[in-house]
Simulated scan of single mutants.
Amino acid sequence: MASWSKQRALWIHRYNKYTHIVGKFRSFVWKYIYLRWLKYKAGNRPLVAIILSEQMGDIIACEPVVREVRQRHPDAYLIWLVRKQYVELVKYHPDLDNYLVEKCPSERVYLLRTGIFDTVYNMHISHRKCKYCPEDPINPTADQIDLTFDNYYNRGDLLYMFSQAAGLPALTADPKMYIPEKVRQRVSSLNISEAPIVIHCQSSHVMRDWPPENWNRLVRWLLDTYPYPVIEVGLESVITEKHPGFRNLCGQLSLLETAEVIRQSHLFIGIDSGPAHMANATGATSILLLGQLFDFVDYLPYSGRYKRGEDITILNNFGHPCSELPYGWVQEAAAQRLGQPKLV
């Protein structure tokens, strides 16, 4: 039975692999034709690519790159290559002319080899491969400054690092998010209480997370102590506390809707994650919980306001993972941000 299960898993992997590879080449051909048509339609305007296809926090943090590139190429047709799940983050940027959905890093390799783009600003570090494809994406500019996955968090915040990987000066600007009115109206229809405390408890990597029991304890204390409602955002909820002042919106919001809820918050409390970058880019006051991540001990991925220490309390028990951050530190930081508790 075990042997059959292994054989079945192997054939499923092979089917997924070759289906992906065939789909990649079809997608590449279609995109190349589409880009040729764009160049024809753009006339004398150069076709300029900005490449940072993932992750959510990286894309939000590197928004100032668009403004920098637009200043350098005021007449260019500016297009951002991005994965499908992150399109919202670039779709409404006023300095972009378009975006192109990237199927996988290997497809990007083939597109760049065609020379279809007149200028390319590639923010990716080398060797972030597709799990199915043999091609190894290389960024010579990142290699030239010795920027690797082993040292990138020791070199500065995300914008500072990735702007240099793209061949730009080390940028330090405040990131922005562009939330259209239709998204604000959708959030308004949710009838969210004014100025809530918004929390985000679970990231894409367990090493960034704080224990669920601590989150539940914190939410219970916040609701018992202050008049503000508490809203949880993200993909999956960790809060089990039952209270009329708590609202779970996990898995119910788009990326920009999540950003709008955070923008409206009285206080955002979260771990190092995409929503924390949203808080930085939307002007929210925040408490962020950090800890050792692999070999990175003293790191700060945020530029702009949070790097300057404005409207932010960063908690980091250096040398320990976020899971070991003392509960009392977070409660004390919240009390300092929220002020005098309500009278009982």
Score class of each variant (00 low, 15 high):
Glu332Ser: 15
Ser323Glu: 11
Ser254Trp: 05
Ile271Cys: 12
Phe246Thr: 02
Asn280Met: 13
Leu338Glu: 00
Ala333Met: 09
Gly291Thr: 13
Pro341Ile: 06
Leu315Ser: 09
Leu288Met: 14
Ala276Tyr: 04
Val238Thr: 13
Thr285His: 15
Gly328Leu: 11
Ser265Lys: 00
Ser254Asp: 03
Leu267Gly: 10
Phe268Lys: 03
Gly339Ile: 06
Ile262Met: 07
Glu257Ser: 06
Arg247Thr: 13
Leu289Ser: 14
Pro341Gly: 03
Ile287Gly: 12
Phe294Pro: 02
Leu315Pro: 09
Ala284Trp: 07
Lys307Ile: 02
Ile271Gln: 02
Leu315Gln: 02
Asn316Leu: 11
Tyr306Ser: 06
Gly304Val: 09
Phe294Tyr: 12
Ile314Asn: 00
Ala276Asp: 06
Gly245Val: 07
Ser273Glu: 10
His243Cys: 05
Glu310Trp: 01
Ala334His: 04
Gly291Pro: 15
Thr282Gln: 08
Asp298Glu: 13
Leu338Gln: 00
Gln264Cys: 12
Ile239Tyr: 01
Thr313Tyr: 09
Gly245Thr: 05
Gly245Gln: 08
Ser286Cys: 14
Gly339Glu: 02
Glu324Gly: 05
Cys250Ile: 06
Gln336His: 11
Ser273Cys: 14
Gly309Arg: 00
Ile271Glu: 10
Glu310Pro: 04
Asp295Cys: 10
Phe318Thr: 09
Lys242Glu: 14
Leu256Cys: 05
Asn316Val: 08
Ile312Gln: 00
Ser286Trp: 01
Arg308Leu: 14
Gly328Cys: 05
Pro275Val: 06
Arg247His: 13
Leu290Cys: 11
Gly328Trp: 01
Leu288Asn: 10
Cys250Leu: 03
Leu338His: 00
Phe268Val: 10
Leu325Cys: 12
Asn316Tyr: 00
Glu332His: 11
Gly304Met: 04
His320Arg: 14
Leu255Trp: 01
Pro301Glu: 00
Tyr306Asp: 05
Gly245Ile: 05
Ala334Pro: 13
Pro301Thr: 03
Glu260Asn: 11
Val297Lys: 12
Val261Asp: 03
Asn280Thr: 12
Leu288Arg: 04
Val238Asp: 00
Ala284Cys: 14
Gly270Leu: 10
Gln340Met: 15
Gln331Lys: 14
Phe296Leu: 13
Glu241Met: 09
Ser273Thr: 15
Tyr299Met: 07
Val297Gln: 12
Gly339Asn: 05
Glu324Leu: 14
His243Ile: 08
Ala279Met: 06
Ser265Asp: 04
Gly274Phe: 07
Gly319Arg: 03
Gly319Phe: 03
Ala276Ile: 07
Pro321Val: 05
Arg263Glu: 15
Ile262Gln: 01
Phe268Cys: 08
Val297Ile: 14
Gln336Met: 12
Leu267Ser: 07
Phe246His: 03
Val330Gln: 04
Gly251Pro: 12
Asn316Asp: 08
Tyr302Thr: 02
Glu257Tyr: 04
Pro321Trp: 03
Leu315His: 01
Ala279Thr: 01
Arg247Pro: 04
Glu260Arg: 01
His320Ala: 14
Phe318Pro: 01
Gly245Ser: 10
Ile312Leu: 14
Ala333Val: 11
Leu325Asp: 10
Gly274Asn: 09
Ile314Leu: 15
Ser323Thr: 07
Arg263Lys: 15
Leu267Glu: 03
Leu325Gly: 08
Ile312Met: 09
Pro321Asp: 04
Gly245Ala: 08
Leu253His: 00
Ile262Cys: 09
Glu332Gly: 05
Phe318Arg: 15
Asp311Glu: 12
Gly328Asp: 15
Arg263Pro: 13
Gln340Gly: 03
Ser265Leu: 04
